[in-house]
Amino acid sequence: MNVHPNEDALNAYAEGSLTAADAAAIEQHVASCVSCRQFVDEVREILRATADLGLQDPPARAWTRIERAIQLEQADKARADGARADGARADGARAFQASEGEIASGHDHGPAKAGRYRLWLPWLAAAAALVLATVVGLRYAPGRSQTGAPTSQAPDGSAQVSAGDAAQSVEYELRQAEAHYENAIKGLEQIANAEQNALDPRTAATLQKNLAVIDQAISESRAAVRSQPASEPAQQSLIENFKTKIALLQDTVALINEMRKGNEAGAARIVSGLKQKGN
């Protein structure tokens, strides 16, 4: 084979998915062609490196978020079950007993069997989960209209948006995203500040130091957006800094929860993450 095989054929050869006859033909060419041999070697190197890719551990706050969401679901279900039981009691159909901090029921309530768990939701976890719920799902992307603002229609039904409208739309989106993040940050800050005494002074100082760095970055990004409102990097930087601050506050709330639960291992994992971010 004197003609260079195409890249698809070399790829298939490198991964070993060719028939024996096709592989033999390419092997013969590769043996005498430096550039094709190099190509095959590079693909094989990528395949080897890919095979060695390991697993990544999720951040410590991930479980805390899931746990809070489950607790909220359980609480909602318990409330709904309680309301149903109240109705049934009013009808004289069933007696329902509730003792302090515990709901007793003869029903099987599926995964959240009401008789088996205590309503131990601390207000802190519930409040944090509500704040986080406002953040999940918000993915700001500059240059993309998601406002739902009215657009003019072309004769074929497609939307026509002028450059001016698009710029206004991006600015509107950015303002919306900014307000959204600021609300979330405010809520998390209230929780974190109210519970600061649950942290040891050194950890609290590390957190304050990290927050100060992020606040400075947010101020600088804001100034950049003000001077160049259409700059996508400036917009992205502002949003990224908001996200960083939210992540740090989430870690703070997660840490406070772990300390309250007396889970030293969980708290240590979070503190280790905070220190790494601070370095």
Binding site: W63, I70, Q71, H109, G110, P111, K113, Y117
Partner: peptide, 9 residues
Amino acid sequence: RAGEVEAFE
């Protein structure tokens, strides 16, 4: 299934 959060963890 019984709703034990510790088991789910």
